[in-house]
Design a binder for these strands. Structure first.
Lengths: 196, 196, 196, 196
DNA sequence: CATGAATGAGCCTTCATTCAT
DNA sequence: CATGAATGAAGGCTCATTCAT
């Protein structure tokens, strides 16, 4: 039998992406072999190449896809909000929610930057910087309006992002803390740190 | 003469450790081969085995060594301080300083946990938890004394640690920000977030 | 429409043969993949199998076709000539012309014998021997009539064929030498070497 | 047992070269796998890389080595001979002898040029041209002294070389013809073709 | 202690070929 | 007929590790 009934190219590629996210998140890009990936989606290793260009290409595809979605989503989340304080609250809620829901993508997107070849890495780093700029902008406008008191905007932005992103490492959807509480705690931590 | 003049076993092992930290920090454990490591210390790959047990063993050694030092150092840094607020300030200063000075060790210690085999990982995770406890204790005592107002101590501790640890990713000793300023900014951010 | 307008099975097969000659001549049979061949004729690899049996089969087809044509042509070229000297001249002119015009086929026909499986190789070697016999016959009849003085007919025949076939390797239709001159030079070389 | 007693690097490399010549001569470079080569010298495939850089590198090494030896040998064979006729005779005898004794090298050196990467190919083609020049020089000097009558020296040189090299394809040391006879036949063929 | 050469497993990738659609 | 997706084998090469010298 040369093809599983009902399978199709699009579905197979989606399965490969999904398995790729899982495996790379668990073990790291270098530690995942295409054999393992193929086994996860019930293919022979060579058959992967009907759907991906190279292993490197799959990694780039996963990360790039994530970054583009992240940027679109943050813009959607901030759309129409004018007040910097409301924007910051929206950003925090968005960032946490997104990072909880896409733990794997987020984790891979930062921990596997170094597995990207230079050309691909450059593209991703640019997108990432664009995302960071969103927070910087909010802090700047809040500072300009004397709502926030911030010593150094880029450093503070990095610090806040590091704090908010940290949950990827430990948050467990089935754990003690529910999502809303988590957002409240972090919102309070950040706002107090930043408000005048 | 088959040995470089003046070299000795201890020195060679130190060189291997140093090169290991460099390479693993740059490329990740899985991406570093013992051939590369050997080349860095001007040895043949086989000769490494006169100094290390296995590649896995070297990784554990590096991380374990780091964790033990970290714990000793934090205890030294907090020694004699009783006031929770002063303790928190000391902790922040210590953590940032240590993480700036040992970027490689810190980075490896968290990003390569998954490259440790289960037995080794367990040991490291226990040490890491011990370190986290130091911060939790401070927060708890501060909260008990009504100095701090904290919604959820473990979550806040994680958030603070994530924020403080974030600098490893971007801090550049030769960059725009000096160390003292960095500590001030972070101290302010954390304290405001936590004080009543 | 999944077929290029005006294409037909026969035309596609002809295109495959032509591309096969080109590619195998350039890179060698083993070095040519059916993917490359398919790309040259704007097909997917699998589609080749609507026109050829196997890769091996295509090679045999190309070489066999060439050998049969070669034999028919040499017989046509020698037809009606009785004098061994005139025959030899005709043979030389024919061989050079044919080998210039079908460089690819000739080259493949000798360099890729080893890529044929034993059964196919046997058939081709028999045809090739038949062709060599044509020259041997001429030399023999010339020697019998005391027109030629030849030490060893098979060896001389091989030597002459090797010389005449050599042009495939270097002759360039757009080069310094025109075809007639080439034939003259070789005719003189061979005849002097053979005449009494 | 990690090493066969008595083996040494030099010996192993020599065995690899020898097996390489055999296999490439029989099957062609592309058709030989390093697994086959390794099996011939009783090694694991990976162990070959203790002795060669890459497969391509081995090919270049074999051909380059051959070309250098060929050039040194032809110069030695012609050394001290001044008369162009005597030189031509010496060249023919040398070329045939060398090509009989090193069938494999000679065959590979011309049939596998296309398997060399461009950079390597360039180097070999230059050496080959140097060798061809040796014959051209002889023909030129003979023509200048009115000993030879040659229509076109480069073309005649190619034709002669093609003829003499042809034996590689069919000569069998255990066959009907002994080496001296072979040289005589070819010498006569060439000289008659060239003498005034 | 260092070296050089070996092992055996495994890597990413390409291949000829098949076949449901 | 062509396609797209699959197979199973094999490709060149790298790896951690071992060990006689």
């Amino acid at each position: 039998m040369s093809r599983t009934a009902g399978s199709s190219g699009k579905k197979t590629l989606a399965a490969i992406r999904e398995a790729g996210l899982d495996l790379i998140h668990e073990r790291g890009f270098e530690a995942v072999s295409l054999r393992q990936l193929a086994a996860r989606v019930s293919l022979q290793p060579g058959s992967l190449y009907n759907h991906i260009e190279t292993k490197q290409d799959l990694l780039f595809d996963l990360i790039h896809n994530h970054m583009v979605t992240l940027l679109q989503s943050v813009d959607a989340a901030l759309d129409g909000i004018e007040d910097p304080l409301a924007q910051l609250e929206a950003f925090i809620a968005f960032h946490l929610t997104y990072h909880i829901e896409r733990k794997r993508e987020v984790f891979i997107g930062s921990s596997e930057l170094r597995s990207l070849d230079p050309k691909n890495r450059k593209k991703i780093v640019a997108l990432r910087r664009t995302y960071e700029e969103r927070l910087c902008d909010i802090l700047e406008r809040g500072a300009a309006k004397r709502l926030f008191k911030i010593d150094d905007i880029p450093v503070s932005a990095y610090a806040i992002l590091a704090m908010l992103t940290g949950i990827c490492t430990w948050y467990d959807a089935k754990g003690r803390i529910d999502r809303k509480t988590l957002i409240d705690i972090h919102t309070r931590l950040v706002l107090q740190g930043v408000l005048k």
